[in-house]
């Protein structure tokens, strides 16, 4: 199944986010080999050049490294993955708090609500 994209944002950025998510969630574990550009492009149903661009970006961030002959691998630097994970989490929380603010909750009230919901479960 092709991946879904927002059409009004660069696709390479969204691809980068998806792959990053797979890395921080452990689906692509530290040191494991990534599928080839071609395989990933087919999976996502996007142009291989666009996918290449996403991987190049991840490489620049150090989350992925390339070996000339054997392909691309997820970094073994767990601290770096951890940092990426924290950054991602912070973004999600920021978004959530913005939405809560729009509804009319302060950050503290939102936190209390989360606690409350958690206890009920």
């Amino acid at each position: 199944m092709a991946w879904q994209f927002d059409t009004d944002r660069p696709i390479y950025k969204q691809l980068k986010e998806r792959i990053l998510l797979k890395i921080v969630s452990g689906e692509y574990g530290a040191g494991t080999q990534l599928p080839t550009v071609r395989e990933l492009a087919e999976q996502a149903a996007v142009n291989p050049n666009t996918l290449q661009k996403a991987l190049t970006d991840l490489e620049r961030d150090g989350l992925v490294y390339a070996l000339r002959t054997s392909g691309r691998f997820v970094t073994e630097d767990k601290a770096l993955v951890r940092k990426a994970k924290d950054t991602l989490a912070a973004e999600v929380i920021d978004q959530f708090l913005d939405q809560m603010e729009a509804i009319g909750y302060t950050a503290d009230e939102a936190a209390a609500l989360i606690q409350h919901t958690k206890e009920r479960k």
Partner: peptide
């Protein structure tokens, strides 16, 4: 992708 980036439009 440059277009999407610059115009925020598909």
């Amino acid at each position: 992708d440059t277009l999407r980036e610059e115009k925020n439009m598909s």
